[in-house]
Design a protein around this nucleic acid. Structure first.
Length: 436
RNA sequence: CGGGGAAUAGCUCAGCCUGGUAGAGCACCACGUUCGGGACGUGGGGGCCGGAGGUUCGAAUCCUCUUUCCCCGACCA
Protein backbone atom coordinates (compact mmCIF):
# COMPACT_ATOMS: atom_id res chain seq x y z
CA UNK A 1 0.00 0.00 0.00
CA UNK A 2 1.27 3.39 -0.94
CA UNK A 3 0.89 5.80 1.93
CA UNK A 4 0.15 8.62 -0.50
CA UNK A 5 -3.12 6.83 -1.31
CA UNK A 6 -3.87 5.30 2.06
CA UNK A 7 -6.38 6.82 4.45
CA UNK A 8 -4.15 7.21 7.47
CA UNK A 9 -4.96 10.42 9.34
CA UNK A 10 -2.21 10.46 11.96
CA UNK A 11 -2.05 13.17 14.57
CA UNK A 12 1.01 14.94 15.83
CA UNK A 13 -0.72 16.07 18.96
CA UNK A 14 -2.77 14.10 21.41
CA UNK A 15 -6.51 14.68 21.33
CA UNK A 16 -7.65 16.08 24.66
CA UNK A 17 -10.12 13.31 25.46
CA UNK A 18 -7.61 10.48 25.47
CA UNK A 19 -6.08 9.62 28.81
CA UNK A 20 -4.48 6.22 28.51
CA UNK A 21 -1.71 5.14 26.16
CA UNK A 22 -3.71 2.84 23.92
CA UNK A 23 -6.48 5.36 23.39
CA UNK A 24 -4.03 8.15 22.64
CA UNK A 25 -2.04 5.99 20.26
CA UNK A 26 -5.06 4.60 18.46
CA UNK A 27 -6.27 8.14 17.79
CA UNK A 28 -2.83 9.42 16.87
CA UNK A 29 -2.08 6.46 14.62
CA UNK A 30 -5.32 7.04 12.75
CA UNK A 31 -6.83 3.70 13.74
CA UNK A 32 -10.13 4.90 15.16
CA UNK A 33 -12.32 7.94 15.47
CA UNK A 34 -14.99 8.46 18.05
CA UNK A 35 -18.65 8.62 17.06
CA UNK A 36 -20.20 9.00 20.49
CA UNK A 37 -19.24 8.06 24.03
CA UNK A 38 -17.93 4.50 23.85
CA UNK A 39 -18.70 4.15 20.13
CA UNK A 40 -15.98 4.19 17.50
CA UNK A 41 -15.43 4.02 13.78
CA UNK A 42 -12.53 1.87 12.68
CA UNK A 43 -10.30 3.40 10.03
CA UNK A 44 -8.22 1.26 7.64
CA UNK A 45 -5.19 0.77 9.88
CA UNK A 46 -7.26 -0.05 12.95
CA UNK A 47 -9.59 -2.33 11.06
CA UNK A 48 -6.66 -4.26 9.67
CA UNK A 49 -5.42 -5.01 13.17
CA UNK A 50 -8.91 -5.86 14.36
CA UNK A 51 -9.29 -8.35 11.51
CA UNK A 52 -5.95 -9.95 12.26
CA UNK A 53 -6.85 -10.48 15.89
CA UNK A 54 -10.24 -11.78 14.86
CA UNK A 55 -8.59 -14.28 12.55
CA UNK A 56 -6.25 -15.63 15.22
CA UNK A 57 -9.17 -15.99 17.61
CA UNK A 58 -11.09 -17.78 14.86
CA UNK A 59 -8.26 -20.17 14.05
CA UNK A 60 -7.90 -21.19 17.66
CA UNK A 61 -11.64 -21.65 18.09
CA UNK A 62 -11.75 -23.82 15.00
CA UNK A 63 -8.73 -25.75 16.18
CA UNK A 64 -10.52 -26.47 19.46
CA UNK A 65 -13.47 -27.87 17.57
CA UNK A 66 -15.85 -24.93 17.83
CA UNK A 67 -17.88 -24.02 14.76
CA UNK A 68 -18.49 -20.51 13.56
CA UNK A 69 -21.99 -19.14 13.11
CA UNK A 70 -23.22 -15.56 12.90
CA UNK A 71 -26.14 -14.39 14.96
CA UNK A 72 -27.76 -10.97 14.54
CA UNK A 73 -27.03 -7.88 16.58
CA UNK A 74 -30.73 -7.12 17.03
CA UNK A 75 -32.76 -9.63 18.98
CA UNK A 76 -36.37 -10.03 19.97
CA UNK A 77 -37.13 -9.59 23.66
CA UNK A 78 -39.19 -12.81 23.77
CA UNK A 79 -36.29 -15.13 24.47
CA UNK A 80 -34.99 -12.84 27.15
CA UNK A 81 -38.33 -12.85 28.89
CA UNK A 82 -38.22 -16.63 28.75
CA UNK A 83 -34.77 -16.87 30.33
CA UNK A 84 -35.70 -14.33 32.95
CA UNK A 85 -32.97 -11.92 32.00
CA UNK A 86 -35.14 -9.30 30.28
CA UNK A 87 -35.78 -7.70 33.65
CA UNK A 88 -32.52 -8.71 35.29
CA UNK A 89 -30.21 -7.15 32.76
CA UNK A 90 -31.32 -3.62 33.55
CA UNK A 91 -30.33 -0.42 31.87
CA UNK A 92 -27.15 -1.85 30.45
CA UNK A 93 -29.26 -3.44 27.73
CA UNK A 94 -30.24 -1.15 24.90
CA UNK A 95 -33.93 -1.66 24.28
CA UNK A 96 -35.51 -0.76 21.00
CA UNK A 97 -39.10 -0.70 19.81
CA UNK A 98 -39.77 -1.43 16.17
CA UNK A 99 -42.52 0.14 14.05
CA UNK A 100 -45.03 -2.46 15.11
CA UNK A 101 -44.39 -1.78 18.78
CA UNK A 102 -42.43 -5.01 19.22
CA UNK A 103 -39.82 -4.96 21.94
CA UNK A 104 -36.39 -5.55 20.46
CA UNK A 105 -32.91 -5.16 21.87
CA UNK A 106 -29.34 -4.79 20.69
CA UNK A 107 -27.70 -7.95 21.95
CA UNK A 108 -25.30 -7.57 24.89
CA UNK A 109 -24.61 -11.33 24.65
CA UNK A 110 -26.19 -14.34 22.97
CA UNK A 111 -26.94 -17.15 25.41
CA UNK A 112 -30.67 -16.95 24.76
CA UNK A 113 -30.44 -16.87 20.99
CA UNK A 114 -27.98 -19.72 20.72
CA UNK A 115 -29.96 -21.82 23.19
CA UNK A 116 -33.05 -21.25 21.06
CA UNK A 117 -31.22 -22.34 17.93
CA UNK A 118 -29.89 -25.38 19.70
CA UNK A 119 -33.18 -26.54 21.19
CA UNK A 120 -34.99 -26.31 17.88
CA UNK A 121 -32.51 -28.50 16.05
CA UNK A 122 -30.82 -30.87 18.45
CA UNK A 123 -32.77 -33.62 20.13
CA UNK A 124 -30.30 -36.46 20.63
CA UNK A 125 -27.21 -36.97 22.77
CA UNK A 126 -25.65 -38.40 19.62
CA UNK A 127 -25.33 -34.86 18.26
CA UNK A 128 -23.31 -33.77 21.26
CA UNK A 129 -20.96 -32.23 22.03
CA UNK A 130 -21.46 -29.01 20.13
CA UNK A 131 -19.62 -25.75 20.49
CA UNK A 132 -20.84 -22.81 18.44
CA UNK A 133 -19.27 -19.39 18.33
CA UNK A 134 -19.59 -16.14 16.53
CA UNK A 135 -17.68 -12.90 16.31
CA UNK A 136 -20.19 -10.12 16.39
CA UNK A 137 -20.71 -6.58 17.65
CA UNK A 138 -22.31 -6.25 21.04
CA UNK A 139 -23.78 -3.28 22.80
CA UNK A 140 -23.77 -2.72 26.53
CA UNK A 141 -24.89 0.66 27.70
CA UNK A 142 -22.14 1.09 30.24
CA UNK A 143 -22.67 3.75 32.86
CA UNK A 144 -19.30 5.20 32.08
CA UNK A 145 -17.57 4.13 28.92
CA UNK A 146 -13.90 5.08 28.90
CA UNK A 147 -10.40 4.31 27.73
CA UNK A 148 -11.30 4.22 24.05
CA UNK A 149 -12.02 0.73 22.76
CA UNK A 150 -10.97 -0.80 26.08
CA UNK A 151 -14.34 -0.08 27.57
CA UNK A 152 -16.60 0.94 24.77
CA UNK A 153 -20.33 0.53 24.75
CA UNK A 154 -20.22 -1.07 21.33
CA UNK A 155 -17.55 -3.73 21.08
CA UNK A 156 -16.60 -6.74 19.01
CA UNK A 157 -16.72 -9.98 20.95
CA UNK A 158 -16.12 -13.60 20.17
CA UNK A 159 -18.61 -15.60 22.15
CA UNK A 160 -18.75 -19.38 22.10
CA UNK A 161 -21.37 -21.65 23.63
CA UNK A 162 -20.85 -25.29 24.45
CA UNK A 163 -23.51 -27.96 24.80
CA UNK A 164 -22.85 -31.30 26.46
CA UNK A 165 -24.83 -34.19 27.84
CA UNK A 166 -23.14 -34.46 31.21
CA UNK A 167 -21.37 -32.15 33.58
CA UNK A 168 -18.21 -34.17 33.07
CA UNK A 169 -18.40 -33.61 29.32
CA UNK A 170 -19.21 -29.97 29.92
CA UNK A 171 -16.00 -29.59 31.86
CA UNK A 172 -14.12 -31.12 28.95
CA UNK A 173 -15.55 -28.44 26.72
CA UNK A 174 -14.57 -25.85 29.30
CA UNK A 175 -11.04 -27.20 29.40
CA UNK A 176 -10.81 -27.17 25.66
CA UNK A 177 -11.71 -23.47 25.59
CA UNK A 178 -9.33 -22.82 28.47
CA UNK A 179 -6.45 -24.19 26.42
CA UNK A 180 -7.64 -22.43 23.26
CA UNK A 181 -7.55 -19.14 25.16
CA UNK A 182 -4.02 -19.71 26.40
CA UNK A 183 -2.94 -20.34 22.83
CA UNK A 184 -4.89 -17.41 21.44
CA UNK A 185 -3.39 -14.81 23.75
CA UNK A 186 0.09 -16.23 23.33
CA UNK A 187 -0.24 -15.94 19.57
CA UNK A 188 -1.31 -12.34 19.98
CA UNK A 189 1.98 -11.65 21.70
CA UNK A 190 0.42 -11.29 25.13
CA UNK A 191 1.12 -12.71 28.52
CA UNK A 192 -2.29 -13.75 29.81
CA UNK A 193 -2.96 -15.31 33.17
CA UNK A 194 -6.14 -17.19 34.05
CA UNK A 195 -7.73 -16.20 37.33
CA UNK A 196 -10.67 -17.66 39.11
CA UNK A 197 -13.57 -15.27 38.75
CA UNK A 198 -16.99 -14.38 40.02
CA UNK A 199 -19.66 -15.42 37.61
CA UNK A 200 -21.63 -12.15 37.61
CA UNK A 201 -24.88 -11.82 35.69
CA UNK A 202 -24.03 -14.67 33.32
CA UNK A 203 -24.23 -17.07 36.26
CA UNK A 204 -22.65 -20.43 36.88
CA UNK A 205 -20.24 -22.08 39.23
CA UNK A 206 -16.99 -22.40 37.32
CA UNK A 207 -15.35 -19.43 35.72
CA UNK A 208 -11.98 -17.96 34.85
CA UNK A 209 -10.93 -14.56 33.66
CA UNK A 210 -7.94 -14.20 31.40
CA UNK A 211 -5.95 -11.18 32.41
CA UNK A 212 -3.33 -9.61 30.20
CA UNK A 213 -0.41 -8.20 32.09
CA UNK A 214 0.39 -4.64 31.10
CA UNK A 215 1.92 -1.85 33.14
CA UNK A 216 -1.00 0.42 32.43
CA UNK A 217 -3.72 -2.17 33.13
CA UNK A 218 -6.85 -1.06 34.89
CA UNK A 219 -6.66 -3.27 37.97
CA UNK A 220 -3.90 -4.52 40.18
CA UNK A 221 -3.17 -8.24 40.06
CA UNK A 222 -0.98 -10.59 42.04
CA UNK A 223 0.42 -13.85 40.77
CA UNK A 224 3.06 -16.44 41.38
CA UNK A 225 6.00 -16.07 39.05
CA UNK A 226 5.76 -19.80 38.46
CA UNK A 227 3.53 -18.83 35.51
CA UNK A 228 6.66 -17.78 33.65
CA UNK A 229 7.76 -21.40 33.44
CA UNK A 230 4.58 -22.59 31.73
CA UNK A 231 4.26 -22.77 27.97
CA UNK A 232 0.87 -21.55 26.79
CA UNK A 233 1.25 -22.96 23.28
CA UNK A 234 -0.19 -26.29 24.32
CA UNK A 235 -0.13 -28.78 21.49
CA UNK A 236 -2.88 -31.19 22.41
CA UNK A 237 -4.84 -33.40 20.07
CA UNK A 238 -8.59 -33.75 19.80
CA UNK A 239 -9.02 -36.60 22.21
CA UNK A 240 -6.36 -35.65 24.73
CA UNK A 241 -7.24 -35.20 28.38
CA UNK A 242 -6.70 -31.54 29.12
CA UNK A 243 -7.54 -31.72 32.80
CA UNK A 244 -3.90 -32.05 33.96
CA UNK A 245 -2.97 -29.01 31.92
CA UNK A 246 -5.85 -26.96 33.27
CA UNK A 247 -5.05 -28.14 36.79
CA UNK A 248 -1.47 -27.07 36.35
CA UNK A 249 -2.47 -23.58 35.23
CA UNK A 250 -5.18 -23.13 37.83
CA UNK A 251 -3.20 -24.44 40.77
CA UNK A 252 -0.79 -21.53 40.60
CA UNK A 253 -1.79 -18.53 42.64
CA UNK A 254 -3.27 -15.56 40.81
CA UNK A 255 -5.73 -13.01 42.15
CA UNK A 256 -7.09 -9.56 41.49
CA UNK A 257 -6.75 -6.92 44.17
CA UNK A 258 -10.34 -7.48 45.31
CA UNK A 259 -9.60 -11.05 46.29
CA UNK A 260 -5.94 -10.81 47.17
CA UNK A 261 -5.20 -10.61 50.91
CA UNK A 262 -1.56 -9.73 51.57
CA UNK A 263 -1.73 -11.21 55.07
CA UNK A 264 -2.70 -14.73 54.12
CA UNK A 265 -1.33 -14.97 50.62
CA UNK A 266 -0.14 -18.53 50.00
CA UNK A 267 2.76 -17.38 47.87
CA UNK A 268 6.05 -16.37 49.38
CA UNK A 269 6.74 -12.68 48.88
CA UNK A 270 9.89 -13.46 46.91
CA UNK A 271 7.85 -15.34 44.31
CA UNK A 272 4.87 -13.02 44.18
CA UNK A 273 4.62 -10.71 41.20
CA UNK A 274 2.52 -7.60 41.48
CA UNK A 275 1.35 -6.18 38.21
CA UNK A 276 -1.52 -4.58 36.45
CA UNK A 277 -3.95 -6.39 34.26
CA UNK A 278 -6.66 -6.07 31.64
CA UNK A 279 -9.41 -8.62 31.33
CA UNK A 280 -9.55 -9.88 27.75
CA UNK A 281 -11.37 -13.18 28.11
CA UNK A 282 -13.86 -14.78 30.41
CA UNK A 283 -15.07 -18.37 30.40
CA UNK A 284 -18.00 -19.84 32.28
CA UNK A 285 -19.45 -23.23 32.87
CA UNK A 286 -23.00 -22.77 34.07
CA UNK A 287 -24.70 -26.11 33.59
CA UNK A 288 -28.45 -25.83 33.18
CA UNK A 289 -28.87 -22.14 33.90
CA UNK A 290 -30.32 -21.46 30.45
CA UNK A 291 -31.13 -24.95 29.23
CA UNK A 292 -33.55 -25.55 32.10
CA UNK A 293 -35.73 -22.42 31.77
CA UNK A 294 -35.58 -22.56 27.99
CA UNK A 295 -36.07 -26.28 27.64
CA UNK A 296 -32.88 -27.13 25.77
CA UNK A 297 -32.80 -30.86 26.28
CA UNK A 298 -31.80 -34.06 24.50
CA UNK A 299 -32.65 -37.70 24.85
CA UNK A 300 -29.82 -39.66 26.39
CA UNK A 301 -28.76 -43.22 25.66
CA UNK A 302 -31.18 -44.40 28.34
CA UNK A 303 -34.10 -42.70 26.64
CA UNK A 304 -34.39 -40.11 29.38
CA UNK A 305 -34.73 -36.46 28.41
CA UNK A 306 -32.16 -34.29 30.15
CA UNK A 307 -31.25 -30.62 30.03
CA UNK A 308 -27.95 -29.98 28.33
CA UNK A 309 -24.92 -28.69 30.19
CA UNK A 310 -23.78 -25.36 28.84
CA UNK A 311 -20.84 -23.05 29.03
CA UNK A 312 -20.04 -19.73 27.42
CA UNK A 313 -16.69 -18.29 26.47
CA UNK A 314 -15.99 -14.68 25.59
CA UNK A 315 -13.04 -12.83 24.12
CA UNK A 316 -13.12 -9.06 23.80
CA UNK A 317 -11.75 -8.76 20.27
CA UNK A 318 -11.94 -4.97 19.99
CA UNK A 319 -10.68 -4.58 23.54
CA UNK A 320 -7.69 -6.71 22.59
CA UNK A 321 -6.54 -4.05 20.17
CA UNK A 322 -6.25 -1.66 23.09
CA UNK A 323 -4.84 -4.30 25.40
CA UNK A 324 -2.09 -5.21 22.95
CA UNK A 325 -1.12 -1.57 22.62
CA UNK A 326 -1.09 -1.16 26.39
CA UNK A 327 1.29 -4.10 26.59
CA UNK A 328 3.32 -3.15 23.51
CA UNK A 329 4.26 0.50 23.17
CA UNK A 330 7.01 2.95 24.03
CA UNK A 331 7.44 6.70 24.14
CA UNK A 332 7.46 6.94 20.34
CA UNK A 333 4.38 4.89 19.60
CA UNK A 334 3.01 1.42 19.13
CA UNK A 335 5.23 -1.67 18.84
CA UNK A 336 3.05 -4.29 17.17
CA UNK A 337 3.70 -7.97 17.71
CA UNK A 338 4.29 -9.33 14.22
CA UNK A 339 1.22 -11.57 14.37
CA UNK A 340 -1.20 -8.64 14.50
CA UNK A 341 0.79 -5.86 12.85
CA UNK A 342 -1.25 -4.07 10.18
CA UNK A 343 1.73 -4.30 7.82
CA UNK A 344 4.94 -6.19 8.26
CA UNK A 345 7.22 -3.56 6.78
CA UNK A 346 7.20 0.21 6.54
CA UNK A 347 9.20 1.24 3.50
CA UNK A 348 10.35 4.85 3.57
CA UNK A 349 11.48 6.84 0.59
CA UNK A 350 13.64 9.42 2.32
CA UNK A 351 13.88 11.62 -0.76
CA UNK A 352 10.80 11.31 -2.88
CA UNK A 353 11.97 14.03 -5.27
CA UNK A 354 15.11 12.14 -6.14
CA UNK A 355 14.34 10.00 -9.18
CA UNK A 356 17.07 7.49 -8.48
CA UNK A 357 15.97 7.07 -4.90
CA UNK A 358 12.33 6.75 -5.89
CA UNK A 359 13.22 4.16 -8.51
CA UNK A 360 15.06 2.11 -5.89
CA UNK A 361 12.11 2.36 -3.52
CA UNK A 362 9.59 1.45 -6.20
CA UNK A 363 11.70 -1.58 -7.07
CA UNK A 364 11.93 -2.63 -3.43
CA UNK A 365 8.21 -2.18 -3.01
CA UNK A 366 7.48 -4.28 -6.07
CA UNK A 367 9.81 -7.07 -4.98
CA UNK A 368 8.52 -7.28 -1.45
CA UNK A 369 4.92 -7.15 -2.60
CA UNK A 370 5.59 -9.85 -5.16
CA UNK A 371 7.11 -12.00 -2.43
CA UNK A 372 3.91 -11.68 -0.45
CA UNK A 373 5.17 -9.23 2.15
CA UNK A 374 2.59 -6.72 3.31
CA UNK A 375 4.32 -3.36 2.91
CA UNK A 376 3.24 0.16 3.73
CA UNK A 377 5.25 2.33 1.39
CA UNK A 378 5.73 5.93 2.45
CA UNK A 379 6.16 7.50 -0.96
CA UNK A 380 5.05 10.96 0.11
CA UNK A 381 7.16 14.04 -0.43
CA UNK A 382 7.89 14.78 3.20
CA UNK A 383 10.94 15.25 5.33
CA UNK A 384 12.76 12.14 6.45
CA UNK A 385 12.24 13.03 10.09
CA UNK A 386 8.49 13.19 9.67
CA UNK A 387 8.51 9.78 8.05
CA UNK A 388 10.58 8.17 10.76
CA UNK A 389 8.40 9.64 13.47
CA UNK A 390 5.25 8.52 11.70
CA UNK A 391 6.54 4.98 11.25
CA UNK A 392 7.52 4.74 14.90
CA UNK A 393 4.05 5.94 15.82
CA UNK A 394 2.18 3.31 13.82
CA UNK A 395 4.58 0.66 15.04
CA UNK A 396 5.17 -1.67 12.09
CA UNK A 397 7.68 -4.40 13.06
CA UNK A 398 10.22 -3.50 10.39
CA UNK A 399 11.24 -0.16 8.94
CA UNK A 400 13.15 -0.04 5.71
CA UNK A 401 14.67 3.36 5.02
CA UNK A 402 16.02 4.09 1.57
CA UNK A 403 17.77 7.37 0.82
CA UNK A 404 20.38 8.80 -1.53
CA UNK A 405 23.08 8.66 1.11
CA UNK A 406 22.80 4.91 1.58
CA UNK A 407 22.22 4.18 -2.08
CA UNK A 408 25.54 5.85 -2.89
CA UNK A 409 27.13 3.03 -0.90
CA UNK A 410 24.71 0.44 -2.19
CA UNK A 411 22.91 -0.01 1.15
CA UNK A 412 19.52 0.50 2.73
CA UNK A 413 18.73 0.69 6.44
CA UNK A 414 16.58 -1.88 8.15
CA UNK A 415 15.30 -1.14 11.64
CA UNK A 416 13.51 -3.42 14.02
CA UNK A 417 10.85 -1.37 15.77
CA UNK A 418 10.88 -3.50 18.89
CA UNK A 419 14.58 -3.67 19.61
CA UNK A 420 15.49 -0.43 17.88
CA UNK A 421 18.35 -2.26 16.22
CA UNK A 422 19.40 -0.83 12.85
CA UNK A 423 21.51 -2.51 10.22
CA UNK A 424 22.71 -1.36 6.85
CA UNK A 425 22.59 -3.99 4.16
CA UNK A 426 22.22 -4.37 0.44
CA UNK A 427 18.70 -4.15 -1.02
CA UNK A 428 18.95 -7.81 -1.99
CA UNK A 429 19.83 -8.86 1.53
CA UNK A 430 16.99 -6.74 2.89
CA UNK A 431 14.53 -8.58 0.67
CA UNK A 432 15.95 -11.90 1.76
CA UNK A 433 15.75 -10.94 5.40
CA UNK A 434 12.14 -9.75 5.14
CA UNK A 435 10.94 -12.69 3.09
CA UNK A 436 12.88 -15.37 4.91
C1' C B 1 -25.92 7.08 39.06
C1' G B 2 -23.08 10.49 42.75
C1' G B 3 -18.82 14.01 42.58
C1' G B 4 -15.60 17.17 39.47
C1' G B 5 -14.13 19.49 34.74
C1' A B 6 -14.71 20.99 29.66
C1' A B 7 -17.10 22.65 24.88
C1' U B 8 -13.80 28.78 20.44
C1' A B 9 -10.46 26.63 13.00
C1' G B 10 -9.07 19.58 11.34
C1' C B 11 -5.68 19.18 16.23
C1' U B 12 -3.57 21.62 20.83
C1' C B 13 -5.12 26.00 23.02
C1' A B 14 -5.39 31.66 24.14
C1' G B 15 -9.32 35.37 24.45
C1' C B 16 -14.06 35.35 29.02
C1' C B 17 -12.55 37.92 35.15
C1' U B 18 -13.08 43.87 33.32
C1' G B 19 -19.04 43.02 26.97
C1' G B 20 -17.27 46.69 21.43
C1' U B 21 -18.26 41.76 16.69
C1' A B 22 -12.19 36.18 16.93
C1' G B 23 -6.44 34.87 17.56
C1' A B 24 -1.68 31.70 17.92
C1' G B 25 1.05 27.14 16.95
C1' C B 26 0.50 22.74 14.25
C1' A B 27 -2.30 20.71 10.03
C1' C B 28 -4.24 22.10 4.93
C1' C B 29 -3.49 24.84 -0.29
C1' A B 30 0.20 27.69 -3.65
C1' C B 31 5.24 29.13 -4.68
C1' G B 32 10.31 29.03 -3.34
C1' U B 33 14.42 27.27 -0.34
C1' U B 34 15.52 22.75 2.25
C1' C B 35 16.17 17.35 2.62
C1' G B 36 18.80 10.51 6.89
C1' G B 37 14.91 11.37 13.12
C1' G B 38 8.24 15.49 13.28
C1' A B 39 12.70 21.88 8.30
C1' C B 40 12.10 27.29 6.79
C1' G B 41 10.14 31.72 4.25
C1' U B 42 6.17 34.31 1.72
C1' G B 43 1.16 34.25 0.45
C1' G B 44 -3.70 31.86 1.13
C1' G B 45 -8.28 29.00 2.54
C1' G B 46 -10.90 27.61 6.82
C1' G B 47 -14.90 29.48 12.68
C1' C B 48 -23.60 31.30 12.79
C1' C B 49 -17.23 30.69 19.65
C1' G B 50 -22.08 23.21 21.31
C1' G B 51 -27.63 24.63 21.23
C1' A B 52 -31.94 27.62 23.00
C1' G B 53 -33.62 31.68 25.65
C1' G B 54 -32.55 36.19 28.44
C1' U B 55 -29.88 41.00 29.94
C1' U B 56 -27.77 44.96 26.84
C1' C B 57 -27.31 50.03 21.95
C1' G B 58 -23.98 45.78 21.46
C1' A B 59 -22.61 38.94 23.97
C1' A B 60 -17.38 34.03 22.57
C1' U B 61 -17.42 37.13 27.12
C1' C B 62 -22.83 38.27 31.90
C1' C B 63 -27.51 35.22 33.49
C1' U B 64 -30.89 30.80 32.89
C1' C B 65 -31.96 26.27 30.72
C1' U B 66 -30.23 22.35 27.70
C1' U B 67 -27.06 18.89 24.92
C1' U B 68 -22.53 16.54 24.40
C1' C B 69 -17.68 15.01 25.86
C1' C B 70 -13.85 13.95 29.55
C1' C B 71 -12.06 12.66 34.58
C1' C B 72 -12.74 10.18 39.81
C1' G B 73 -15.93 6.48 42.19
C1' A B 74 -19.53 1.78 42.32
C1' C B 75 -20.33 -2.28 37.56
C1' C B 76 -18.52 -4.92 32.89
C1' A B 77 -15.61 -8.70 27.10
Amino acid sequence: MRLSRYFLPTLKETPAEAQIASHRLMLRAGMIRQGAAGIYSWLPLGLKVLKKIEQIVREEQDRAGAQEVLMPTIQSSDLWVESGRYDDYGKEMLRIEDRHGRQMLYGPTNEELITDIFRKEIKSYRDLPKNLYHIQWKFRDEIRPRFGVMRGREFLMKDAYSFDLTEEDGRKSYNSMFVAYLRTFARLGLKAIPMRADTGPIGGDLSHEFIVIADTGESEVFFDKAFDALDPMIDAGAGDDLQPIVDEWTSIYAATDEIHKPDNCPVDASKLVTGRGIEVGHIFFFGEKYSAPMGASVQGPDGETTNVQMGSYGVGVSRLVGAIIEACHDADGIVWPESVAPFKVGLMNLRAKDDECTAACDKMYAELTKAGVDVLYDDRDQSAGAKFANMDLIGLPWQLAIGPRGLKNGVVELKNRGSGERVELSPEDAVTKLTG
